[in-house]
């Protein structure tokens, strides 16, 4: 009986788009001006109340992911992949539906979350590690390994603002690499850095899979998806188009990109 890692049930995410006419997002000034705006619109015979447009980033998304699975989220830009990942990371909440998470989540959505350049590398390791979901004791016990892996031992007590971009990425990555996630959520924007660095990332991800972690990965690279993920979920305009073995889903997705006509979307 395999255990569930994540279950999403009929999840919708709605955004309201404000049009430029409505002025800056929310201000007391707007509230005070409201009666005047109303009168003006009445005089010009425009519709009295401006409706904000509703935009659905996610529509009725449902799936289950079991413990230990590796799932890729693919789709065009704006399809809702990052929104879904943000939702699984608890950064944003659904408009409708329910998500249940059965494992401890570590979300890697950017390089160096929480880094403050005024502080030293040492201080940032603790800060970044905490934002990534590591416990203080865990960070402390792995501290030396993290510093070793990043190869910036010499500069660990210098403020990060003096680091080169390469050093910064190496340090941030080093912290991330020492996570022991149960459920790991990764956004593709993590593929910064040179080829060697990317190779390191792939190796590490496979290692994590081997040790039983569940991985959900958002990526545009079919190589990454096919390499790491056994299963892929294809999102298009907020809805799940296909959910199955990554090779099959990737194939359909690529066909769609070339010629969308045959697909009834």
């Amino acid at each position: 009986m395999s255990r569930l890692a994540v279950k999403t049930e009929n999840v919708w995410k709605e955004y309201r788009i404000r049009h430029a006419l409505e002025g800056p997002q929310g201000s007391f000034k707007a509230v005070l001006n409201a009666p005047f705006n109303w009168l003006m619109r009445r005089a010009e015979k425009k519709p009295l109340f401006q409706q904000s447009e509703r935009f659905f980033a996610l529509k009725d998304v449902s799936f289950e992911i079991e413990h230990g699975e590796s799932v890729g989220l693919i789709g065009r830009n704006g399809a809702g992949k990052s929104t879904l990942l943000k939702m699984l990371s608890r950064i944003t909440r659904p408009s409708r539906g329910k998500i249940t998470i059965y494992e401890r989540v570590n979300a890697l959505l950017e390089v160096g979350t929480g880094f403050n350049t005024e502080l030293s590398g040492r201080e940032n390791i603790y800060l970044n590690g905490s934002f990534l979901g590591m416990q203080t004791l865990e960070i402390r016990s792995k501290f030396d390994e993290i510093v070793d892996f990043s190869e910036i031992e010499q500069f660990i007590d210098t403020p990060v603002k003096y680091y080169s971009s390469g050093m910064f990425v190496r340090l941030a990555f080093s912290v991330a690499v020492h996570l022991t996630p149960e459920l790991l959520l990764i956004d593709e924007t993590l593929s910064v850095g040179d080829a060697g660095f990317q190779q390191k990332s792939m190796t590490k991800m496979k290692e994590l899979l081997g040790s039983g972690a569940t991985i959900i990965l958002v990526s545009h690279s079919d190589r990454t998806i096919n390499d790491i993920c056994k299963r892929a979920i294809w999102l298009e305009r907020g809805s799940v188009q296909m959910d199955g073995p990554s090779a099959d889903v990737e194939e359909s997705y690529r066909k769609f990109l070339v010629d969308p006509a045959p697909f009834s979307i």
Binding site: R90, P94, R96, G97, I101, Y102, E103, R104
Partner: peptide
């Protein structure tokens, strides 16, 4: 550890 944890439910606010 996963087994010990109670699941986190995310719902509309």
């Amino acid at each position: 550890r996963a087994a010990e944890m109670s699941p986190v439910v995310i719902t509309p606010p």
